[in-house]
Amino acid sequence: MGRSQEIYIRAPRFGNINRILGKAVLYGVVTAMTLPIIIMYLWLFMQSVSEKVLIGFIPSGFTADGWRFLWGPVKFGEVLLPPIWPITLNSLIIALGVTGIEVSIALMAGYALSRLRVPFRDSFLILIIILHAFPGITLLIAIFYLLNVMGLINTLLSVIIAKAALEIPMATWLIKGFFDAVPWDVEASALVDGCSRLQAWYKVILPLVKPGVAAVAIFAFLAGWNEFIYALTFIFDPNLYPLSIHIIGLIGEFRYVDYTLLAATALFYSIPPLVFFVITQKAFMKVPLVGMKGA
C-alpha cells in the first residue's frame, strides 16, 4: 500500500479547524502521557553534568565533577569507592558470557526445532513453549541452592550460566521464529544445488537469519548487562560486583551526598543499552510479538 493512501485512510475526517484542533489534542495528550519519561531521562543527563538541576531538567552550573570516577579514585570522607574499570569489566564479562552461551545454544536448538526432523521434536517444542511463558525467577531459591551445592556460588560464572539458562527458552523460541521465516523452497533448492544439510545451513540459511540472530544477541547482551538480582543473590565478593550492584550501593549510601556522581555513574552504566536501543529500536518493537502467533 502506498504511503499517501495510508495517510489518507488514517487522517480523521473533520473540518479543517476541527482537524487541526483534533491533531493538537492528539499530540498534546500523548506528549503529556510521555512527559514523565522524557523528564526523567533528561534529568539523568542534565544532573550528570551540572551541580544542580531546577524543576527537573533545567541545569545550573556545568561541572564534569560527576564523571571523576572515570579517571581517579573517589573518596567520601573515610570511604573510598572502588575503581570503576574492574567493575565495568565484571559487567562486560557477564554480558558477553550470557550472549555467547545463550546465542550459540539457542541458535542450535532453534534451528533443529524449526528445520530438522529429530526425535522428540514436538515434545521439546512444547517444553520450550511452556518454559518461555513460565517466570524462571520463581526458581531462584532452588537455583541458589544447586549452585551452592556445586560450589559455583560467588563466581561470575554462576550469574552468567543461570541468566543464560533462564533466557534460553525465550531465545530459542525467537530464533526458531526467524528460521521459520526462511522459505522451505530456498533450503530445498540449496540441497538440490549440491549442499549437505550443514552446508545449506551455513551458506544459505544463516545469512538470511543473521539480522534476527543479531537482535537476539543484543537482547542477550543487554539482559546480562542489566542483570542485578542474580548478581545480588549469587555474588558476595565486592571484587566481583558488576555495575548494577555498584550503583545499588551508591543509591543506598550516597544518594544524598552527591547526586551528580550518582547520575553520572548511572548514565555511564546506561550507555551500552541506550546505544544498542537506538540502533535496534525496530527489533525491540517486533520481538515481544513473536510469541503470540496463535492469538
Binding site: 542450535m108 533443529a112 530438522l116 529429530v118 531459591i141 532452588a142 550460566i161 543464560a164 527458552p169
Partner: peptide, 28 residues
C-alpha cells in the same frame, strides 16, 4: 543420524533446561 543430530543440536539446550528449570522445580 537423526538421533545424533538431536544430541548435537538440542543436547546443550536440554542440559541447561534440565539443570536450571527441571531440577530447580524438584529442588524447590
Amino acid at each position: 543420524r537423526s538421533y545424533i543430530y538431536m544430541i548435537i543440536f538440542l543436547g546443550p539446550a536440554l542440559f541447561l533446561i534440565l539443570f536450571f528449570w527441571i531440577l530447580p522445580v524438584f529442588s524447590t
